[in-house]
Nucleic acid binder design. Structure first.
Lengths: 340, 340
DNA sequence: CTGAAAGCGCTAACAT
DNA sequence: ATGTTAGCGCTTTCAG
């Protein structure tokens, strides 16, 4: 086990130049003669020198690291998004420091830890945070973007799909399909996505004069969703359609409906989800769902972050991405339906 | 947007003590009188002071960050593992800096970047690395553990399941089930997991005097696996059982077999996977598979890393975790089969 | 274009 | 137990 650190000083010595010359050669906007650069590069290679990013950031203030807080990977939407996010950030020269928020963790504390690492930006995936922390991030000049959530706090940017509209589309499709007993299985009500999707869903129902037939909560959890499904279908009269708040939960419901209740989808009951995760398109589910475009959401997240880091655009934005209905076969297709 | 950094110096001033006193109060094994600690804490709180981890690490040499390189999240096994890994490391006071290796990326370069961040350890999930890099990590005193892969290079620790044995179990189960045309769909052959699982599988086949009926490659990819499946089943005589190298691919194969070939599982063909990801247990698949215990693998990874970081145990180890057969219904269950 | 010198925020001897 | 003094490895004025 070796631990001899090769410093810019060592390189300077070997190349017969000053230490600051070495620094220049390894800095982006450097001014060094080709000859010098050559000498230095050679010496560096021979010694196996590489600049210490941490030392650099201490002085420049640019750690080149972005903090990411994410609650869980069960819902496939998140690993998908995180993979894309990480890759996008990498091409910008940034890297992601991950904080997994275990259930019941103090998010504020996590974010403090994050700030201690001198992150240049923070993305919060599916977690909310106190306004006290918002304050601190603001004070530290660290931009925060909420991914797939939004909060009223004006200090945060957020990137979501148009959840309200998505909810409306789900309702419209189900109603047009001639369903008479339309139900909803909800996620955790503290989440803005849940509230917005449901609000949109209900607004369309109302507009068409349709009453919500039943409602249960699955809390974004697979098991709890199955429990909710049982509650909903252990009745004399059961729904003929259900809008489930996300695909992960929708699939839980489908498994339960098919294998415990022996119901046929969509003949006995139509299911609509939200997200359009990879799994949704597998033939076993062929889930009709509202597509939440992870790619575009990530692009906007990165763009927002970079702008704010570069100080180009200081004001937080709430970005909403359009989410199309992906028609597959888990929900009855209305006669003559023409998708917008 | 503020950016006034509060330093230990500011706190010292306000508390009327020396700067090093502040440092001591915020250091683990500090020696500070209760009174002093009190004063300092108060001043720190009022100013919103928090130690700069990067500055600290510059001097202590402990960045408290672990580098993670991971290739993809498509295979659910990885997000599961990464979530657990991140959480475990967090309780040890470490955090994970993620590098996503896009296909075709130069892993060596990625690892160099990682080293530039002064990571204290590196875990490589499903990627291999040149011995040149092994050299550098060794020189830098940074322990590397291969997760779910192994390499012959002695400088790396590795944590895998007992893939060879797992392959044997799969074959044994299929043979005992009376299958006559046993096939294999392989992953990328550069991966040790693939080689080991297949080697074990074949060794048991041989032992029982059974010939491998067919073999195709799915390259760990969903689509390619479906292509491989088509190749294999667009024949007059087709397999009556197939061992697929991992669950992710096994599910791809099942989708193809059921919905394109209208085959019944396990009546027409038995399927065995490997990993036991969450999805495998869903009723739609009820996949018989070799369980690769992510929990234990992560525990061993963290343990190995911590030991080496603390300098307690310098020698790299190759750890193999036992992997039990999870019997579900995707493969015919042999008459009177008794699981070990 | 290059070198000398200062200092980023902190910890760790070394004194007291 | 506390303060003083050196740096960690680097970037960045400032002279030359």
């Amino acid at each position: 086990m070796g631990k001899e650190t090769v410093t810019s000083f060592d390189v300077a010595q070997r190349a017969g130049v000053s230490q600051s010359a070495v620094s220049r050669v390894f800095s982006p906007g450097a001014s060094a003669s080709p000859k010098m650069a050559e000498k230095v590069r050679k010496a560096a290679d021979e010694l196996g020198y590489r600049p210490n990013v941490l030392a650099r950031s201490l002085i420049t203030g640019n750690s080149k690291i972005i903090g990411l807080v994410v609650a869980y990977f069960d819902n496939q939407f998140y690993p998908e998004a995180v993979e894309k996010l990480s890759k996008s950030l990498q091409v910008e020269g940034y890297h992601v420091l991950v904080f997994m928020a275990s259930n019941g963790d103090d998010i504020d504390k996590l974010m403090q830890d994050l700030l201690d690492y001198q992150v240049e930006g923070i993305v919060l995936a599916s977690v909310a945070v106190s306004s006290n922390l918002a304050e601190r991030c603001d004070a530290a000049g660290v931009p925060v973007v909420l991914f797939n959530r939004h909060q009223d706090d004006d200090r945060f940017s957020s990137v979501t799909s148009n959840n309200y509209d998505g909810g409306r589309k789900a309702a419209e499709f189900l109603i047009a399909g001639g369903h008479k007993r339309i139900a909803h299985i909800a996620g955790w009500e503290g989440a803005s996505t849940q509230r917005d999707r449901e609000a949109g869903f209900r607004s369309m129902l109302k507009e068409k004069g349709v009453e919500l037939f039943a409602r249960e909560t699955g809390n974004f959890q697979f098991d709890e969703t199955q429990e909710a499904t049982r509650l909903m279908f252990n009745k004399d009269v059961v729904p003929d359609a259900v809008f489930v708040t996300n695909d992960h939960m929708a699939i839980a419901a489908m498994e339960c409906l098919r294998y415990e209740f022996k119901l046929s989808i969509p003949d006995d009951v139509s299911i609509i989800g939200y997200d359009d995760v990879e799994i949704a398109s597998w033939p076993s589910y062929s889930l009709t769902t509202i597509r939440q475009p992870a790619n575009r959401m990530v692009d906007e997240t990165v763009k927002t972050l970079m702008k704010r880091i570069r100080g180009e655009d200081i004001t937080p934005h709430k970005i909403e991405i359009e989410s199309p209905l992906m028609i597959r076969t888990s929900a009855r297709i209305p006669q003559g339906w023409v998708n917008e």
